[in-house]
Design a protein around this nucleic acid. Sequence first.
DNA 1: GTCCAGGGAATCA
DNA 2: TGATTCCATGGA
Length: 271
Amino acid sequence: MDNVLDGIYKKIGTYTGVIKDAVINVEEKEGKVVFSGVSNKNLKDICIEYFDLNRNYEDIKKTLNLVDDNVAKSIEYGSGIRILNQDLWECIISFIISANNNIPRIKKIIERISMKYGKELEFMGKKYYTFPTVEELSKATVQDLRELGLGFRDVRVYETTKKILNKQVDIEKLHSITDSNILREELLKLDGVGEKVADCIMLFSTLKRLEVFPVDVWVRRVMNELYIKAEDENKVNKEQIRKLAEEKYKNLAGIAQQYLFYWKREENKAG
DNA sequence: GTCCAGGGAATCA
DNA sequence: TGATTCCATGGA
């Protein structure tokens, strides 16, 4: 038996979706992990990279469990969480769209963008669409984006696409920047990218800065409830939250953020 | 009809 | 720097 493949199945379960230029299906058949899909690259390699399967999350969880009981509880709640290695360009556009928006609508907008400007792939009789490249999305006018339902974010996506296309910000070179502060400064040059979106891009893309701690409304809420305990959570300083996260979670703050975020949101849904 | 959504940017002090 | 306000859209 292939223990690596067995491990992969245990980690990601069944999955069908688009990863970069590929449609990938992972499932278990007769006790074996089977990859199928449409791609000119190795399906298994794509999965290992995308699902961050070479990282030992058990070690990470052991470390974070020692911080305090709250974190331990959140880890128990979302024990299968992994931080994906999402494409940088796709991540930038996705989080610009996320501003003052809700997750179902964010997903729908990205689907519409992919359907109109990405490439069509067919797998098992069903059609899938890749997220458009910079060149592909640069064909869209502000009006085109407005019609896809982006709202006030249309200009931001348009301007950012333009800046990346003409290499005013060269995102290919971002991976070679070691200093996280310089990296953040580069991202902040993009329209629609503020502190929170920049942090999300650094954490959730292939930039993989696991130490950054994006503070959104949910994270502010959970951090206030667990540690700060201010009467009005809206008045809690974001910088104070980031410092607290750095002290407590060190270089794993970003992963802790995900456990805490998921925990608080799911608890709210169940509420 | 009202409120809110994984915020950013412009404006003003 | 820090606080306020507006920004489209759609679902609850």
